[in-house]
């Protein structure tokens, strides 16, 4: 028994200091500085301090790339049929409903057709907010139709990827989308119109292992995570810490896997120029 006993006193936490900003401010994931949202918006959702590229929605992406932000949307009515009747603690159908409510989209990709720097172009943009931008039957079919259109009308095609990979809840059906899309791109080769793949943060798994790596040009945004296996899976397999910057766009450029890194601000001009250089304009 001790002679003296220290009085146990719970540490008092200081009272919460919250300031109501009505969501006007956001903390940069790169430099941790507090940014005014309006500044961020004016700067293509990139940090004005450190140039960290925030994720953008598929709609915002299309508006950034098409002239005057105007485009016609294709195949917007396509929706998943839940072919596996997938259900764990929550049913896949409920997850889809929730994602639709949050994003106003029926699945993780929008196809738009319009002018990009005065060249008629088809652009597909993926939406990360929709089940991690994962690729199931709808994403697969929408891209396959976009390729059919690009072939039929001899138009250049741009796909902006932002995805965790194939969608687990559609099992082998998701996997087969990789085959369907890649075979479509093989046919697109024959009409000699450019397909430019834009890889943004993150692009991994079955999306990287199919159309995202199959562009006539593969262009990445700065700092984007791009790979086949996710970093955690690799760490678990090899039981080693991964080197700094592993699987980032700069790493891929150094290893010869992509053609260029293009900041978001310059992306539209770059894509327009690439189209012209490849004879699509």
């Amino acid at each position: 028994m001790a002679w003296f006993r220290k009085e146990k006193q719970a540490l008092e936490s200081p009272p919460e200091k919250t300031v109501q900003t009505e969501g006007l401010w956001v903390k940069c994931e790169g430099c941790k500085k507090i940014l005014w949202k309006k500044d961020l918006e004016a700067n293509f959702q990139c940090c004005p301090q450190c140039n960290h590229h925030f994720k953008v929605t598929a709609r915002a992406r299309l508006e950034m790339l098409f002239d005057e932000g105007r485009y016609t949307e294709h195949d917007s009515g396509l929706a998943s049929t839940d072919p596996l009747q997938f259900k764990d603690s929550k049913s896949y159908r409920d997850r889809l409903k929730k994602a639709e409510k949050n994003t106003g989209m029926k699945d993780a990709l929008i196809t738009g057709e319009g002018q990009l720097e005065s060249t008629r172009t088809i652009i597909c943009a993926m939406e990360f907010q929709f089940v991690g931008g994962s690729m199931g039957a709808v994403v697969g079919e929408k891209i396959a139709r976009a390729i059919d259109r690009a072939i039929g009308q001899r138009l250049p095609l741009v796909i902006v990827s932002c995805s965790g990979g194939a969608r687990m809840m559609e099992g082998a059906i998701s996997l087969m989308q990789m085959a369907k899309i890649s075979a479509g791109l093989a046919r697109l080769d024959e009409v000699k119109k450019p397909y430019i793949s834009v890889l943004t943060d993150p692009t991994t798994g079955g999306v990287t292992a199919s159309y995202a790596m199959l562009g006539d040009l593969n262009i990445a945004e700065p700092g984007a995570l791009i790979g086949f296996a996710g970093p955690r899976v690799i760490e678990q397999t090899i039981h080693q810490k991964l080197p700094e910057g592993f699987q980032r766009a700069e790493f891929l450029l150094a290893h010869g896997m992509i053609d260029a890194i293009v900041p978001r601000k310059e992306m539209k001009a770059y894509l327009g120029r690439a189209s012209r250089l490849l004879g699509a304009a």
Binding site: A79, S80, P83
Partner: peptide, 8 residues
């Protein structure tokens, strides 16, 4: 291959 979509 694997076209499991509904259209509205």
């Amino acid at each position: 291959l694997a076209t499991f979509v509904s259209e509205s």
